[in-house]
Amino acid sequence: MEENKAHTSVFAKPKNLKRRKIVNSIMLSLCVVAAVISILPLFYIFFYTTKSGISSLNLDFFTQMPKPVGEAGGGMANGIVGTLILISLGSIIGIPVGILAGIYVTEYSGGIFSNLIKFVTDVLSGVPSIIIGIFAYGVIVIPMQGFSALAGGFALGILMIPTITRITEEMLKLVPQSLREASLALGVSRWKTTLQIVLRTASGGIITGILLAIARAAGETAPLLFTAFGNRFWSTDLNQPIASLPVQIFNYAISPFDDWHKQAWAGALVLISLVFIVNLIVRIVTRDKFANKV
């Protein structure tokens, strides 16, 4: 019925057609405006961070300790090392669990159980990172009776799991089924096929997925506030509170001191560059994958 009406309106009323054409161009240009609006903050943030951070971003920033209030200069060496340590700890937990779960979902899929895992992984990726922080607090900080690098790394590890699982899953799906069948036909056992043929074929994609997860974890602040806590001094002890770049940025940003703000902008610039570069790499690698597939 409705289509009939539309049909008559097209041919019988040219006036109406004019109105429809106007609506058409208005709505389409609104879409263009929306695209511009959504990109604008990105450029603004990039521009502003670079402008405010570039002056403090020098060798000292990477090699020096924070200076007390009032003294210019200094760096965030402890925060950078702390972030590296936290990420390594997180990777130890996140990478194996993420990859194995991804393998399970694709290679042994079909059952209700693997669908359930898929669903739970999606839900876990939507859990606010601060909740993961509370969890790490309950599991590690309370029994150990103090904030520690270990707890921070644990929190980051859990945060990395869903990203890695998801990418592993996507990448394994791209591996041709015939490859698996060929290997199985040669009498290779199931798990050996998975490990040596399928995983090796997809390894490039999985590595980019891990990079992506690391980039995301590197910028996480909320779960570290009450697990790794932060530290003004040099520390690599896993049982002690440890500094991290994002937490240091946060503390400096909400402080009233201009010198600290400059340092924080430099830190923000480092984080943004990291995120940008990793995403660029991922983009290039996955584009090649898709090109091969098509």
């Binding site: 923000a268 995120v275 995403n279």
Partner: peptide, 22 residues
Amino acid sequence: LSFLIEILAAIPSIIYGFWGIF
């Protein structure tokens, strides 16, 4: 364009906050 929008999702929230304040 879609790459730029993806980047927008990947920027750490602390940087959004920092930019928000200043």
